[in-house]
Design a binder for these strands. Structure first.
Lengths: 169, 169
DNA sequence: TGAAGTTTTCATTTTTTTTTGAAATTATTG
DNA sequence: CAATAATTTCAAAAAAAAATGAAAACTTCA
């Protein structure tokens, strides 16, 4: 290998190392904003800037986390449809790639993590309403507060689909 | 006090007790969805269905939390503009009321908690772009990934104001 | 089938976050 | 100004969340 091609290879490696580092940091923060553990962000961040599919223990050793953590993290990412597995000739291990279409990720997240909460919020508000007798004038304060909660969940309910539509990234 | 008015008073107390309970549970969940500690949700939930302003130690004793916790929690809620203080004749203590306009709360939250992250994300992406030499053909994979990240933050940046506008609760 | 390879599970440990409570600080009033 | 009341701060304790690693449970293929 001559000096020129060597230096070019080193440079690409350095670029990818730097991008990987920034990527992991980026996704660790983003995921933690969404309440997901550090390891999940690390794994996704690593995969996001890795062109070839990685096995679980490649992931674990690159990130210096336990295989238990890697297994758990990948499970979470699979459930969010944030990773895909690829078949690799003559290798029985699973090979993971990042799903890089954020629109898809986001819509899974909305449906799985947010909508259930919204539904249980609506149930709860119905329960609150039943608590208050009809036409009771001295309970205005409570009625107004319940009304505001209703508007809040109604708006959120309208918002989520709108959000998903706007997110044609 | 005759039986009739007694029963009516009891009933209102029972109603408010039940609403308070549901409210606390509701906001504990909601706040924890936003990454805020239990005590913050409890305090807001209590205030949300309490017509009169409460002092810090009324809050602490009603919720059976320490005054340290109450102080910390109220500090957080003040910084989110989720509570207001009222002046009460001849009482030197602060009296707290819930800010019940969610639109206002939400917009404070967006500005204080989300926008800063978005800005630092943009900085980071610029840094990533500088990493990659111009016109490098063999680095397509990385360029595409960076492009996707840019679209993500651009979309989020457009989304937040839209969100705030839609949230005319 | 069974042996080797791979992944998951889960009790335990580690780390992080939250709460407590008492001391320090600040504010109020007689 | 001092005495009292109200609030904040912060070190230590408690609780909650996450990571570890070894055993169990799968899978594959020779």
């Amino acid at each position: 290998m001559n000096l020129e091609s060597r230096s070019s290879v080193d440079s690409i490696e350095e670029i990818s190392r730097n991008l990987e580092f920034e990527s992991i940091d980026f996704f660790v923060r983003l995921m933690s904003l969404l309440g997901l553990p550090r390891s999940v962000g690390e794994i996704y961040g690593l995969l996001y800037f890795t062109p070839s599919a990685l096995t679980m223990d490649q992931i674990a050793s690159r990130l210096e986390i336990s295989i238990g953590s890697a297994s758990q993290g990948l499970k979470t990412l699979r459930s969010l449809k944030a990773v895909k597995t690829t078949y690799v000739q003559g290798d029985r291990r699973d090979h993971y790639l990042a799903e890089s279409e954020f629109r898809r990720l986001f819509s899974t997240f909305l449906n799985d993590e947010i909508l259930p909460h919204l539904n249980s919020a609506n149930d709860r508000i119905s329960r609150m309403e039943k608590e208050i007798p009809k036409n009771s004038n001295d309970l205005d304060f409570y009625n107004i507060r319940i009304e505001k909660l209703k508007r809040l969940t109604k708006a959120s309910g309208r918002l989520l689909p709108t959000l998903a539509r706007l997110l044609k990234l």
